[in-house]
Design a protein around this nucleic acid. Structure first.
Lengths: 143, 143
DNA sequence: GTATATGCAAAGCATTTGCATTAAA
DNA sequence: TTTAATGCAAATGCTTTGCATATAC
């Protein structure tokens, strides 16, 4: 989420700025963030204690619809929200601790689908998820 | 799921063959299959009407744990089960109708993660999901 | 005969929705 | 002042679980 111009972009779309929404947006600032709705709720509640889960979910859905936030599903369990929606990127997931690293498309060489495999599809985007074990999990015991 | 040797592999693991489990396994035979638990339940019930959802879910979980079946999550909604678990492959999802095509790894050229992007991870596998619109959806109106 | 699988119904988790109240613009 | 956002609680959709009964081996 590009925070500098965010408020203006949201105002343009006639988004009312409330303390609740502000706390959700603030919870989503920082690098390499991949949070569940519950985690965002906890962070938002630390600032605005009366915020409800419903408002968090509503706000997240709206931000996703506006293209400001990316929602992703890594395996089962709750969805993850990635504020880094503007710059297209891929993910590297640790199967030990579940932590996720962003990978810029540059890290993926020649991701290309051959004509005969496209099967007439009009391609829109590609999602790549690398699964592995991070150094910390690799060094500790097996999980 | 390689059906020729499946019964033997399952017997080796002391899996009791019941009509219910057989109907679930039969529901999963066919090419390019990506079914929800509910769809598998419907197919199984057509053969064994007294089967319960719980048994379908239990059986699917067991097959996944045995490595005979792949479970995947494409966006929100129910998980999809892909019997083609032995041969590693990727997916092409139509954002119009939701239909999924298998893509063999050969269709993806040079999927490679640079050393400096690996960030110390020990890579295990890569999941690639192409999103697009199939010819049928492309030709009909916008969805 | 014994261990395991089954069906049922209830519980669980993540998320959405209806609605009366509150507050931003 | 008007229109939209909020909190609450109930409802939803998908999946798992506890337990008594039935059944494959």
């Amino acid at each position: 989420m590009r925070h500098e111009l965010l408020r203006e972009r949201l105002r343009e779309r006639r988004w009312r700025i409330t303390p609740q929404r502000r706390s959700v947006v603030e919870a989503l600032s920082g690098p390499n963030l991949h949070l569940t709705a519950e985690e965002i709720f906890a962070r938002a509640r630390a600032v605005v204690p009366e915020i409800s889960r419903a408002t968090v979910y509503n706000t997240l859905r709206e931000l996703v619809e506006m293209g400001e936030l990316a929602e992703m599903q890594i395996g089962p369990g709750p969805a993850l929200y990635d504020p880094n929606a503007v710059v297209h990127h891929h993910h590297l997931v640790c199967s030990g601790c579940g932590r996720i690293h962003d990978i810029h498309p540059l890290g993926v060489k020649h991701l290309y689908l051959r004509e005969e495999d496209r099967d007439g599809f009009e391609l829109q985007r590609v999602e790549v998820v690398f699964h592995g074990r991070c150094r910390a999990c690799e060094e500790s015991e097996d999980t």
